[in-house]
Amino acid sequence: MLANLEELYIGGNRLSGVVLTYISNASRLAHLDLTSNQFTGVIPRSLGDLRLLKILCLANNSFSYESHYGELSFLNSLSNCKYLNVLWLNEIPFNGFLPVSVGNLSSNLESFYMNDCGLYGQIPSSIGNLSNLADLNLSQNALEGTIPPTFGGLLKLQEMDLGYNKFQGPCPSELCYLLNLGRLSLSSNLLSVVLYPLKNLKALMIVDLSVNNYFGDIPIAIGALQSLQALSLKHNRLQGFIPESMKNMLELQYLDLSFNNLTGEIPSSLQVLQNLVYFNVSFNRFRGPIPHGGPFANFTKLSFLSNEALCDAPWLQPCQTFEQSSRKKTVLFVLLALLDP
């Protein structure tokens, strides 16, 4: 009976126990979905004997693994599954590190999830061998080191989430080759200097680079990302002005630049962003009038908290009054300085 089985879907139940090694007797099995159960024990290496396997979903279980100093060596056996297209191992408490052999997984692999698995160590550079990968999620782990330059070889990548790890240093310039990338999340790491390589990624729709160590200016070239719908740069160390070129990002719906060191005025040209429904520049050093038109008519003071000298909004004093008050204070300080013996 097992020999004729081609698809097995038993996800979303309360099944427990171990997955027996004789699952490999189902030699024609192409789809195996055990997600969201209560399975325990070792993931059997015999899964690698399922040579026709295309989809393997084991996510959200309590599997363990046979390890050699923490290496997730069971992935070695899956390299025999040459047709494997989807591999979802997320939300399993592996608490180990990715072996170099992860790069030997099927060249047909398009979707690879190992988020929230307790992974540590570095991403092997061999991951760049997975040339058909379109969707990669390694978020919510404890991965560290730098992001390998070999990511630049994942030319078909459409979604990449490496958020909530411990990556540090600059992102590789090779990211600029990922021309099909539509969603990028590197949030909550220790990364720096990443904005410039993004200017070529015209397919980007969602970018989350929040809670990192990015510094310097927001590049003028960011205005070329005209398909972008959501951009979060909050909690970084960005300086300088909001570039006028951002007025060209007409699809933008969400923009968060809060908790940086940005200065100057909020460009009135951003009033043309009619799709913008969320805007936050709180905790910066902006000065001058808050725009009134377009989407700005709907934003409240919660979008502008704790800046240096914003004015001309219902909850703030008019700019003229502020400027006059500022000049008076300057004159007073000068007089006091002159009178000081």
Rank of each mutant, 00 (worst) to 15 (best):
N95D: 11
P44H: 01
R51Q: 12
N61D: 07
L75A: 00
H68F: 11
W88Y: 13
L56C: 14
K82V: 15
L87Y: 09
A59S: 07
W88S: 14
L56T: 13
A59V: 06
R28N: 15
L72Y: 02
E66R: 03
N95P: 14
N76C: 04
S46N: 08
T35D: 13
F39I: 10
I43F: 05
F39Q: 07
P44T: 00
S67H: 03
A30N: 13
R45D: 12
F63V: 10
R51I: 12
I55N: 09
F39P: 15
S62L: 11
R45N: 09
Y65F: 10
L50N: 09
L52T: 11
N80P: 15
S46Q: 10
I55D: 14
L75N: 03
P99N: 04
P44A: 04
F39D: 12
Q38K: 02
R45I: 10
E91V: 02
R45W: 07
R45Y: 07
C57D: 13
L89M: 09
D33W: 07
F97C: 03
L87F: 10
F63L: 06
F74K: 05
L87P: 15
S64W: 06
L56I: 13
K82W: 13
L52S: 14
L34W: 03
Q38I: 01
L84H: 02
R51P: 15
A59G: 06
K54A: 15
S77G: 03
I92F: 02
G41M: 09
L34H: 04
E66G: 06
N85E: 13
T35N: 09
L56K: 01
